[in-house]
Nucleic acid binder design. Structure first.
Lengths: 141, 141
DNA sequence: GATAGTTACGCACGACGTAAGTATA
DNA sequence: TATACTTACGTCGTGCGTAACTATC
């Protein structure tokens, strides 16, 4: 009914390996499930992706096209995971914030409370400065 | 254990809807499975993607980042499906091929056989021509 | 007859829905 | 107390593996 990321991985591995048997071995599974998943993928796409022969498989033009796209999807997925890991790292550690007197009693406390609620791992360092000094401090970290 | 495309769809819909209840309704499912799948996604990423409150959810920075990436993945997946449909269309219909005498008995028959084996839906039209005429015929279709 | 792929069958994990529980404004 | 989300539990679908079958060189 719907394509899965596993099916994309299976297809890419199959294209690399050249035969169902080798691909299944690389994927640490047996041939029958792999065969079924590729068949399901082709059924979902209503398109043959490879031609089965006695000496292995050959990709159809549609298969070649889909191989490139499937790799893109998997690459993008990997990128998403890396980005999340990076974002998680960014939410930890120390966040230094400077502000000026005119904002001290109006917006700062509310912002701090909301931020601490959302990201308790972050250590907030808050300091009041003169505008010119603040600008310089921000540039230097 | 592994992220699924369904989880990406769920998360995108949740970010759009703002609450689990509305997102579940849009996805034609009940809240509990949606809640579990989002929890599973966060567990897999080892990162909180949104903060649950009494009035709905708010994305964390990591959640905002992942939302953009998840949408990219789903877009790329849709593109892959369209490309396959286009490739399938390209494999049907008629393929006209011209060739010159010197190739007639060597490579052409083998190529034809292999092509017909792979793509039986394509109707092959093969014709022998003089080089100059062939060039002109190719340009005109 | 050996190699490659598919179909048959049984099991187990995972997803969903209903119902009950928990928390916050 | 009302709204929003989570946990509990039972059912059903789907994926996997082993074994048997089919086809091609």
């Amino acid at each position: 009914m719907t394509i899965t990321l596993a099916q994309l991985r299976y297809f890419c591995e199959l294209a690399d390996a050249g035969t169902f048997g080798r691909a299944a071995a690389r994927l640490h599974m047996s041939q029958p499930p792999l065969s079924r998943q590729i068949a399901a993928l082709e059924a979902e796409l209503k398109t043959e992706l490879c031609v089965r022969g006695a000496k292995g498989i050959v990709l159809t033009p549609a298969g070649v096209q889909f191989l490139a796209d499937a790799r893109d999807v998997l690459r993008q997925m990997a990128r998403a995971r890396r980005n999340v890991a990076a974002a998680r790292a960014g939410e930890m550690g120390q966040l230094s914030i400077g502000f000026t007197m005119c904002a001290a009693y109006s917006v700062v406390p509310a912002l701090m409370r909301r931020y601490r609620d959302a990201f308790p791992q972050v250590q907030l360092k808050v300091r009041e400065m003169m505008p010119v000094v603040l600008d310089q401090a921000l540039r230097s970290g």
